[in-house]
Design a protein around this nucleic acid. Sequence first.
DNA 1: TGGCTGTATGTGACAATGTCACACAGACTT
DNA 2: AAGTCTGTGTGACATTGTCACATACAGCCA
Lengths: 229, 229
Amino acid sequence: MIALISDPILKKKLSNQFPFLEGAEPSFVQLFFNSTAIVHLEPDQPICQQGMQCSHLALITKGSARVYKIGENGREITLYRIGPGESCILTASCIMNDRPFPAFAISEQPIEALLITTADVVRWSNDVPAWRNYLFRLISDRLGDVISVVEEIAFRRVDRRLANYLLHRTETTDDNLQITHQAIASDLGTSREVISRILKDFEQQGMISITRGSIHLSDRQCLRNKSIE
Amino acid sequence: MIALISDPILKKKLSNQFPFLEGAEPSFVQLFFNSTAIVHLEPDQPICQQGMQCSHLALITKGSARVYKIGENGREITLYRIGPGESCILTASCIMNDRPFPAFAISEQPIEALLITTADVVRWSNDVPAWRNYLFRLISDRLGDVISVVEEIAFRRVDRRLANYLLHRTETTDDNLQITHQAIASDLGTSREVISRILKDFEQQGMISITRGSIHLSDRQCLRNKSIE
DNA sequence: TGGCTGTATGTGACAATGTCACACAGACTT
DNA sequence: AAGTCTGTGTGACATTGTCACATACAGCCA
């Protein structure tokens, strides 16, 4: 499950993925590879639990994870997703400030990640400019992400957010989305009934067609109009 | 309006307020004071506008500011407030990553602040460990703040949030709150009518009494129960 | 005093969203 | 065929958001 990095080809790959390795001092690159372990994670495995003290920082090289909050009533809302080249920066923030993790993180696509100990995270952030810039940029990006979420749920109507969501989730794939209404609701921070209702509206207006467990986008332009209506 | 810092007593005061000055190298402390200007700001003055490129970072020494988003419909929501010893860290994040500011910031209490140029912000974050730790901690705190806001608006009912709000806003003062319903609505990200309605409910239940422009908390315990109901 | 003029608040109707309880439908097992 | 998951549909109702007003209070001026 856990292995030290040694393959030189792998090294090169990682250098391309993580900007702090490019142009870094060779001694640090060496150090980085020597003190890093690779882990693999199946989908739907918990990565961080709310309230946890974090012992490692995970840099994702493949796959993706979802960071989300759970409300008193059991509803969920996704704060952001992280993919290759990124890291669960909330972990870093917890590490640096010695705080418990304020949310949940779970794997979605099968994940391959590099594990870095808290000690290394702190040490490198003192010694390696490129590393701390990387951390700083990531955490700034996340702050931006979460501010966008606030804006969305505070001001935008659910039907428009949903239209937007469907478009974004099919950007890199075809027009078929394999997902349940509940999963969408958990991303958008609303309830399953609301999503079902609106999807049915969309279907009746000919924008999509629905089957159990999947949605087909038949009129993207119409959805685009809806999303910015 | 703008003056260089020279008074030694003032220096001492500031050292107490900003952790990165305590125990810092004397040469940096000297540098910091030499390259820092003091500004004063009346209440309700804009500090940062959404979309701005930031040219300075403001460290607040007195007073407070409010950072908020404005929705398409004109409604507002407060992301967080900053007070003495803190700084408009979103600015720092914009500076470090060369991005436009994603929100609005406005002074509330009369502000006294230290202005630092973007060049110094970047330079010190490379050279001065205590400074970059300060920045990192601030931005982490803000991320935590904004995540809490998401949780609030996504999952909690307005009446409970309002009860909680009233209690928090009178924590350091007496039981009289000088504020309009509109201002509360702008903090909580809802509309004035909703706040007025609920306040009226609270009044009829004997928790508060309302007069034009101010609210008196007559039964804090009852409000506490309401807020966690 | 009374009448302006802002700003603050109240109200009723309706739309959008959230909640609850339960019905129904498809896929899979036995 | 019956049982059992999981996913979806539905109607009733509560909460919240929106709109168009009405009303109330404070300060000012005639």
